[in-house]
């Protein structure tokens, strides 16, 4: 569907409706938003005064009431993560310590939960797959054994250790690999609905 230019107040209203409709199944949400979008496009135009647009919005009613009319028998949307969501978050963060399988289980729980939107799920999966344990791999890489030899008390000559550049890069990567999963976990906990 083509996106029409709406009066800023009407566009704002549509955004509130989309937000309120998060709890609805995807198909219903799309239809409802499409209908209200069409209504706004018919009843308002971008040149209208704010007062005129507000009258139209007032006749429509509060977005929350429209969504409630759509799902009269559904309980109010649960706020925050439930048990499945918490388990998923913990497994994504640290489940990889259980021979990596834990992370995969976490990812499956993430994708089967209805508490997150697709964008949240992509972020949860793609920012450092494996979670915290991935950082350990880099740590192991950093500690590649060094062999140092000194001939007849002369200057030490070391081979096999990582170069300085390699060490800096690895440290940066290590910081990202530790902070990334922690940020993702906090993000997921806050986004769950």
């Amino acid at each position: 569907m083509t996106t029409m230019t709406l009066h800023p107040l009407a566009a704002d209203y549509l955004e509130r409706l989309e937000h309120a409709a998060r709890s609805l199944p995807r198909g219903e949400r799309r239809e409802l938003v499409a209908e209200i979008n069409a209504h706004l496009a018919e009843a308002t135009d971008p040149q209208m005064s704010d007062a005129e647009v507000l009258t139209v919005l007032d006749r429509l009613g509060e977005p929350e009431d429209i969504v409630a009319a759509q799902s009269p028998d559904q309980p109010a949307p649960r706020q925050g993560p439930g048990t499945q969501e918490w388990v998923a978050i913990v497994l994504l963060l640290a489940g990889g310590f259980i021979v990596f399988v834990g992370w995969i289980v976490g990812a499956v729980m993430l994708w089967t939960s209805r508490a997150w939107r697709v964008r949240d799920k992509l972020i949860g999966t793609l920012i450092v797959p494996g979670g915290l344990p991935t950082a350990i791999l880099v740590l192991l890489d950093l500690s590649t054994p060094q062999t140092c030899t000194s001939l007849n008390g002369g200057p030490q000559h070391c081979v096999g250790g990582p170069s300085t550049l390699h060490q800096i890069l690895s440290l940066g990567l290590f910081a990202f690999l530790v902070l990334g999963p922690i940020f993702t976990a906090v993000y997921l906990a806050r986004r769950a609905r």
């Binding site: 209908e35 209200i36 759509q70």
Partner: peptide
């Protein structure tokens, strides 16, 4: 409220 008619139509 007009808006609640759309869920009814659905």
């Amino acid at each position: 409220t007009e808006g609640t008619l759309y869920p009814l139509l659905g």
